[in-house]
Amino acid sequence: MSLWIPAGITAAVLLAFGAIIGRQNRDLLRAQAYGEFAARLVPLAIAGILVLWLPVIVNMARPDRAVPVMLVYMAMTVILVSLAARSVAAEERKAGNAYRKGDYERAVEIYRELVQRKPLPRYYCALGASLDATGDHLGAVEATSQAIKQDPEFGLAYYNRASSRAALGQRNPAMEDLRAVLRADSSRKLKQAALRALESLEKNEPLDGST
């Protein structure tokens, strides 16, 4: 079977992943951070180019060396793509890892540095979530409000601000933010979480926290 067929299928799969990545980073497009958006597609673009070149490379090799050449080429592709992926938003990944590990103070520190260098709505939103986790609810409201000011369609920022406002006892503003989540650019999962949070506030129950 020609190598062009699996190469074409792989390229199609990479395009599908590219569409998913694009959907997950629409906030960067709204913020006109085109360079940041493009950087997140670079690893997939590299993989696509290398995969499409695979049949050419294998055909250039001697028949008895075709399989070893293919394996080496694929290994190099994986290494190059991995290196490219790790170089994209390295500080953002560090902050996210710190948050997931419960090291909220470290997450706050990194996100503060990020918003100073690149004042993007997503970084203000994440800073707000980290501040909220440390108990600084006022600081969290300020950070998420900045994210919303820059990107009024950022559903996650409304959700995180709702969590902080609820913690401050601002029930009605928190409910307004949760309703805004339903109108804004939000994932299905986030909208479901907002609906559950609205129900909890209507029953005067505490929210689960920011996400």
Score class of each variant (00 low, 15 high):
S2K: 10
L3F: 08
L3E: 12
L3Y: 15
A7Q: 09
I9F: 13
T10I: 09
A12P: 05
L15I: 10
A16S: 12
F17I: 15
G18N: 06
A19N: 10
N25T: 14
N25P: 07
D27F: 09
L29P: 12
L29A: 13
Q32V: 07
Y34L: 08
G35M: 07
E36M: 06
F37Y: 12
F37W: 11
L41G: 00
L41E: 04
P43L: 02
I46Q: 06
I46V: 08
A47T: 05
G48S: 08
L52E: 03
W53Y: 10
V56H: 10
I57K: 11
V58F: 00
V58H: 00
N59E: 08
A61G: 03
D64V: 10
A66D: 03
V67G: 05
V69N: 03
M70K: 14
M74I: 13
A75S: 07
V78I: 13
V78P: 03
V78C: 06
V78F: 01
V81T: 05
L83C: 12
A84N: 07
A85I: 06
A85D: 07
V88P: 08
V88F: 12
A89F: 09
A90G: 04
E91L: 12
E92R: 14
K94S: 11
K94P: 01
A95V: 13
G96H: 01
G96Y: 03
N97W: 04
N97L: 06
R100N: 02
R100V: 03
K101H: 14
K101I: 07
E105N: 15
E105D: 15
A107K: 09
A107L: 07
A107P: 05
R112I: 04
E113R: 14
E113Y: 06
V115H: 01
Q116S: 03
R117S: 05
R117P: 02
R122C: 13
A126V: 02
A126Y: 06
L127E: 06
G128V: 04
A129F: 06
A129D: 09
A129C: 04
L131M: 13
D132E: 15
A133Y: 01
G135R: 00
G135F: 02
D136E: 01
D136V: 00
H137D: 00
L138P: 01
G139Y: 00
G139H: 01
A140F: 01
A140V: 00
V141T: 01
V141A: 00
S145V: 00
Q150K: 12
E153Y: 06
F154R: 11
L156S: 13
L156C: 03
L156F: 11
Y159M: 10
N160G: 02
R161Q: 01
R161P: 00
A166D: 12
A167N: 12
L168W: 05
Q170I: 08
P173I: 00
A174F: 14
M175F: 09
E176P: 08
E176A: 15
L178Q: 02
A184Y: 00
A193S: 14
L195V: 05
L201I: 13
N204C: 08
E205C: 01
D208R: 11
G209M: 03
S210K: 07
